[in-house]
Amino acid sequence: MSSAERLPESIVCSAIEWQMRLRAHAGSPELQRQLQDWLYQDRRHQLAWQRLQQMGGLFQSSQLPDAAQTIPLLQRAEADLGRRRTLKLLGLGLAAGSATLLATQTPPAWHADFSTATGERRRVGLVAGAEVVLNTGSAMDVQGDWLLLRTGEALVEGQAWQVRCRFAECRGRDARVVLRERDNASEIRVERGEVVVSTSGGERRLLAGDGVSAAPSGLSVLGKGPLDPFAWSRGLLVVSDIRLADFLVEAGRYRRGWLGCDSAVADLHLSGVFRLDEPGMMLDNITHLLPVQIIEHTRWWVRVVPVA
Rank of each mutant, 00 (worst) to 15 (best):
S3N: 14
E5C: 15
A15F: 02
W18E: 01
Q19R: 10
Q19A: 12
R21T: 13
L22Q: 04
A24W: 15
A26R: 06
L31G: 08
Q32V: 13
R43F: 14
R43L: 11
W49V: 07
W49N: 11
Q53Y: 15
D66T: 09
A68S: 08
T70H: 02
I71N: 02
L73F: 12
A77K: 11
G82D: 15
L87F: 07
L87R: 03
L92H: 12
L94R: 05
L101R: 01
L102Y: 11
A103Q: 12
T106R: 15
W110H: 09
D113P: 04
G119V: 00
G119I: 01
G119S: 01
G119F: 00
R122I: 08
R122F: 12
R123S: 11
V127R: 05
V133E: 12
V133R: 07
N135Y: 07
T136L: 02
D141T: 05
E157L: 11
V163G: 02
V163L: 03
R166I: 08
F167H: 06
F167A: 10
A168W: 02
R180N: 07
V195N: 05
V196D: 09
G201K: 11
G201D: 14
G202M: 04
R204N: 06
A208S: 10
A208T: 05
S213F: 00
S217I: 06
L227A: 07
R234S: 13
L236I: 10
L236H: 10
L237I: 01
F247G: 00
E250Y: 08
R255F: 05
R255D: 00
L259A: 04
G260K: 02
D267W: 06
S271Q: 08
R275F: 14
L276S: 01
T298I: 08
T298N: 13
V302Q: 02
V305H: 08
